[in-house]
Amino acid sequence: MLTATGVVAGYGEHTVLRSVDLTVTPGRITGLQGPSGSGKSTLARVVALLHPRTAGTVTVDGRSVTGSGYLAPAELRRRIGMVFQSPRAATDPRWTLRQVIAEPLGAARRSATRQRVAELAEQFQLTDDLLDRYPHQVSDGQLQRACLARAVALRPAYLVCDEATAMLDPSTTATIAQLVRGLADAGTGVLAVSHDRALLTAWADHVLDLHDLHADARTSWES
């Protein structure tokens, strides 16, 4: 279980999340829905240990995490994969797709990098020709598949997709959604963030509204 309890986070003076609770269960796709600017991405980044929180706890499989970013333990960061909204922004323009996918393997000093890259390439339908191209030479959908491959290269227990399909056309969205569904069926706990309720309804096992996750909203709703 990947859980966030009483998370308060924001940007400087501006608090976006006021005590939010969230649980991501292995093997299921948890949809997180909310309007633009409501703090979905902030919550996704807090859960992925990339954004600092001013209060609250995040636990990964029972282990409570202190700090975020570089300060969070590397092995816990590796347990949570992250896919970003814009694959262009999420890939170094100087790297070929092969280097992009191999990055986590090199960083974690895993052996048999080549074999794992070949495996991932097959899983995410990336041909050898595509692997040797730079990000500006492939389409958004192809690049997002590479980002997905990078995110799961180290076989994380959880995957956070922050508006991962927002830049893509319907058929590419379907491909990505299907690939993520396959990962969930294999046991990965997925947090799918989107403002698109229709997509989440079709894609996720259950859909949560960010507004309802706030402690104050919950009490007013329960009372």
Partner: peptide
Amino acid sequence: RDYVLATVSLGGSRRQ
């Protein structure tokens, strides 16, 4: 940039 955030998410250190 997001790609630096991705490296951090993949367990990358400041040095990396």
